[in-house]
């Protein structure tokens, strides 16, 4: 293939991977603290709607982005209530949260369908943006894509090198030990739920502020579930999350380009590609894990912290 086709494909892969990347990092953050949250899809939708409404009425994309994050964190707080306060089943609560979030965003957002709101547009970075191939592929994107570039190393640094990061990890690996060390694992898990929720909300906001400037019911179209799968694929490592998200985005963009290039393959087969790849990648990840006999998941993931009374 010639570079004229590769470069736009890379650019599209990054752009369609970015909302998934934010959501994957958010879910990873929450899971690192030991809480499994399957409500990502619903939280993303609420984030996307809150961001869209805020942008529509204030005209400020930055404010809208924050609103998107906060809204998703707020919805995520429901999950925290169920799992951290009342010790409910994390799987059931997360599924309920997806249904709730989808329904809520649908009910509140219906009057806004079809309207356009201001958001983030392409922003060519000086110097980097002028590089051959890499420039147009990676550095002529919008501000939120650049934010995701910064977020990934920051995420890694936070968990690998800082004290709060280690404490969160402790709450996810072995909360009893964390408690013995004088920490409050419940408070740490709350931080995981809310902080992760905020990032998931940014992923939702990306869809309604940058990817499109529109709102519609079910704008996420399953991207929240892809994020949940990618956390496992990435083995709770932010670097691999980037690979997973861009791969998913890339295949999505690739199948459309294959059609545009005039292929005669049935479109139904092509449309299966991103999802089939996700399944395949999970199987491979599981096989590899089986071979190494270890698990990358936080030890106490989805295990509630029972009081000792």
């Amino acid at each position: 293939m010639n570079p004229d086709l590769i470069v736009p494909l890379l650019a599209a892969a990054v752009q369609s991977g970015t909302p998934v990347l934010f959501a994957t990092l958010g879910e990873m953050f929450t899971e690192k603290a030991g809480v499994l949250n399957l409500g990502v899809e619903g939280m993303m939708l609420c984030g996307a709607l809150a961001a869209f409404v805020t942008s529509l009425y204030t005209g400020s994309p930055v404010l809208a982005l924050a609103a998107g994050g906060l809204a998703a964190a707020l919805v995520g707080a429901l999950h925290g209530m169920v799992c951290l306060v009342f010790l409910g089943n994390q799987v059931v609560s997360g599924l309920a949260l997806t249904i709730l979030g989808t329904g809520l965003a649908d009910a509140l957002g219906t009057p806004l369908v079809g309207r356009t709101a201001p958001g983030f547009g392409p922003l060519r970075l000086p110097v980097l943006g002028d590089l051959p191939v890499l420039g147009p592929a990676f550095f002529q994107q919008d501000a939120l894509v650049y934010l995701s570039y910064l977020l990934v190393p920051a995420f890694w640094f936070f968990f690998a090198r800082t004290r709060p990061g280690l404490r969160l990890t402790a709450a996810g690996e072995y909360p009893a030990a964390a408690a013995a060390a004088g920490l409050d694992p419940i408070a740490l898990r709350w931080a995981g739920v809310l902080g992760g929720g905020f990032l998931v909300g940014l992923g939702g906001a990306y869809l309604s502020l940058a990817y499109t400037h529109l709102w519609t019911s079910n704008l996420t179209a399953g991207r929240g579930w892809i994020a949940v799968a990618l956390v496992i694929f990435a083995a709770w490592r932010p670097g691999r999350a980037v690979a997973g998200a861009w791969l998913f985005g890339g295949i999505m963009a690739f199948q459309l380009r294959l059609q545009a290039a005039g292929t005669t393959l049935p479109s139904s087969l092509l449309l299966m590609l991103p999802y089939a790849t996700t399944v395949l990648v999970l199987v491979v990840a599981a096989l590899r894990r089986g071979a190494s006999r270890g698990s990358d998941a936080p030890e106490a993931l989805s295990v509630n912290i029972e009081p000792e009374d």
Partner: peptide, 25 residues
């Protein structure tokens, strides 16, 4: 006329991406 099928009636994100793929060719 180059055709790209999205298999959705209303998914602005995918439909926009489909249009972009047509612009690229």
């Amino acid at each position: 006329v180059r055709v790209v099928w999205t298999k959705t009636w209303y998914d602005p994100a995918t439909e926009k991406e489909a249009a972009k793929s047509l612009l690229d060719v």
